[in-house]
């Protein structure tokens, strides 16, 4: 329990992170107090993290995605902030979007089946070989474990990445994830049937159409699509034809997080 009254979120910026402004905007709209902080500043005073209930790793190209996407940032967390991050993960919320998801997977925070932070999966190069940007249709297949997606059945969001193909180390990792209710979003076709790996609905040919997953507690979420880019109905690609919604959009993910924080963490 923290003595802070309002839910508060910290958004970590690495060199090359580029979605922190809109991620902070989404959190503010969901009524979080938000602090954006550069990782170098955080390393000067690691205890800052204790003041927050939600940690967000936004999208972008941390360290240029050189070597592999999210890898160098993941090592920053593992080698410089290990204790702080593990203690945060113990009872608080972490969300990683796009590059943030890649960081969480490469740091072993996701999928973390069996509860240990070992690398069990990866997000690797899309089959088509390069970056791809489009809006995708997603189905929430989670039965209730994930705290961020309650009340969401189906949502359209933009994707923009070159390395979004989810792959597991061994088949049993996926089986366990399914058993633990860790699968969150799956790519769908226009008619809401499963994408079954088909391009462009599942743009990177991700395993089992996986677009987002959570850890066994449901408090850590990673997803390739960008909910922070759909906060107004006017962001929807076909709003001029009457589609899009001012409430049932990306903001719901952040509002659910806020509700959880109020109920459990303050």
């Amino acid at each position: 329990m923290s003595d802070v009254e309002n839910p508060s979120a910290i958004v970590i910026i690495f060199p090359g992170t580029n979605c922190h402004v809109e991620t902070a905007r989404a959190l503010s709209m969901a009524k979080f107090e938000v602090r954006e902080i550069h990782v170098n500043e955080l390393l000067q005073d690691k205890s800052i993290l204790e003041q927050f209930q939600l940690l967000a790793l936004p999208g972008g190209f941390s360290y240029g995605d050189d070597i592999a996407s999210g890898k160098v940032a993941a090592n920053k967390l593992l080698f410089k902030l290990e204790d702080q991050i593990k203690s945060f993960a113990n009872d608080k919320l972490i969300i990683g979007i796009c590059n943030g998801f890649q960081i969480l997977v490469k740091a072993g925070l996701l999928p973390a089946v069996g509860g240990d932070f070992k690398i069990q999966a990866t997000l690797t190069y899309n089959d088509l070989g390069h970056f791809y940007c489009d809006w995708v249709k997603l189905k929430n297949v989670n039965s209730g474990k994930c705290v961020y997606t309650r009340g969401i059945d189906f949502i359209e969001l933009p994707v923009a990445h070159g390395e979004g193909k989810f792959v597991v180390k061994e088949d049993h990792v996926f089986d366990q994830m399914e058993k633990n209710d860790q699968i969150v979003f799956k790519y769908m076709k226009h008619d809401k049937s499963p994408a079954n790996g088909a391009f462009p609905h599942n743009p990177g040919n991700s395993l089992k159409d996986i677009a987002g997953i959570c850890d066994p507690t449901g408090r850590i979420l990673g997803l390739m699509p960008h909910p922070e880019r759909y906060l107004l109905r006017y962001n929807h690609p076909r709003w001029t034809a009457g589609f899009g919604d001012d409430e049932e959009n990306g903001i719901r993910i952040f509002q659910n997080a806020r509700d959880y924080v109020i109920e459990h963490l303050i």
Binding site: N18, C19, V21, E22, R25, G59, H130, F131, Y132, C133, D134, W135, P158, A160, H190, P200, H226, E228, R229, Y230, L231, Y234, N235, P237, R238, T240, A241
Partner: peptide
Amino acid sequence: VRQYDSEVQGNTILKPLQGCKN
């Protein structure tokens, strides 16, 4: 068009590609 990120910053209202299938 698809190789470029047209959505980052979350402010894109009228997209470079438009229509029922975007």
